[in-house]
């Protein structure tokens, strides 16, 4: 009896060691590219080309970062502008989605209006449309409305989304109905009830939607690709894509590329680490629903 338990314990120990080994290996595989990216952004072009694996820039240079933030005589690549555009567009889209999706989500969850089922069906249907089908339609409508190649054209079409409406509806459904009735009894109108009573109760939902919207619009690429054409509307993603394809004469400047790519990753990374629990929670909640 005692023998089997020691055998079992030894086996468990071995298994645990194996698990840690596997986890460490995977962690290296998942974080390694980011570490190499960071190191490369401080290298010179020849150093990056000859020692791509080295984590020690030799010589260490801030050249790429100076160029990225405009402290350099070479201003052929306007990163600061891309950064500004990305921020502006992402903030506007996030504000749009949070407000419009909450309004619609509340109506679909709580307000009884004729045609509600139909509207909800439509929202669910658009949820199922694969994004790749939307490239041509979106270009088309922007052309028709003379919004092509403009800030409103980059913002308005994605300032509301079916996913967000659906998400907010789920959150509103969890609010106890009795609270709204109490507010109504006290003579509050529909909007007052919504704004003063219900909205504060769905704060977790609002934070979730804010994070998802910001992350989505910051990382957005294909839509900005088809909705703009002038370099002055480049965001970090479309600008970066152009930079790497060499049309701006920077095809193989890897340190610059890696630095700019890191700059693109950074805001979402910060958001990710700040709200990690929520990020992870969202995904997991989504899975349970599915």
């Amino acid at each position: 009896m005692g023998d089997t338990t020691t055998v079992e314990a030894a086996r468990q120990k071995r298994r645990r060691r194996l698990a840690y080994g596997a986890l460490t290996l995977f962690a290296l595989l998942y974080l390694g590219p980011f570490i190499i990216q960071l190191a490369t952004s401080f290298k010179t072009d020849p150093d990056a080309a000859t020692h791509p694996l080295s984590l020690w820039p030799n010589p260490f240079t801030m050249r790429s970062w100076k160029r990225i933030f405009g402290f350099s005589s070479d201003s052929s690549v306007d990163f600061v502008r891309w950064l500004f555009n990305s921020t502006l567009v992402a903030v506007c889209i996030t504000v749009g989605r949070v407000s419009l999706d909450s309004l619609a989500g509340y109506a679909l969850a709580r307000l009884k209006f004729p045609g509600r089922k139909l509207v909800f069906g439509l929202v669910l249907a658009t949820l199922a449309v694969p994004g790749v089908v939307l490239l041509i339609p979106r270009f088309l409508v922007l052309k028709q409305l003379s919004l092509f190649d403009s800030y409103p054209g980059m913002i308005l079409p994605i300032a509301m989304d079916a996913t967000g409406i659906f998400l907010m509806r789920q959150f509103f459904l969890q609010v106890p109905e009795s609270l709204e009735e109490a507010a109504r009894m006290d003579g509050a109108g529909v909007f007052t009830t919504f704004w003063r009573v219900v909205m504060p109760l769905v704060r977790p939902g609002l934070i979730t939607l804010t994070i998802l919207s910001f992350q989505g619009s910051w990382n957005e690429f294909s839509f900005f690709l088809v909705s703009t054409i002038s370099p002055k509307y480049y965001t970090l993603t479309t600008g970066l894509a152009n930079l790497s394809s060499g049309s701006l004469g920077s095809g193989t400047q890897y340190p610059l590329n890696m630095g700019a790519a890191l700059l693109t990753t950074l805001p979402v990374a910060v958001l990710f680490f700040a709200f990690q629990r929520r990020f992870v929670g969202n995904q997991m909640a989504g899975a349970v629903k599915g």
Partner: peptide, 26 residues
């Protein structure tokens, strides 16, 4: 509530119709 419902839902609904549903049909 009927009026409010439509008021609440229409900004997003119009957006989805104008920028998604109708363009797909076109």
């Amino acid at each position: 509530q009927g009026i409010a419902g439509w008021l609440f839902v229409s900004p997003a609904l119009i957006g989805l119709l104008v920028f998604l549903v109708i363009p797909i049909i076109v």
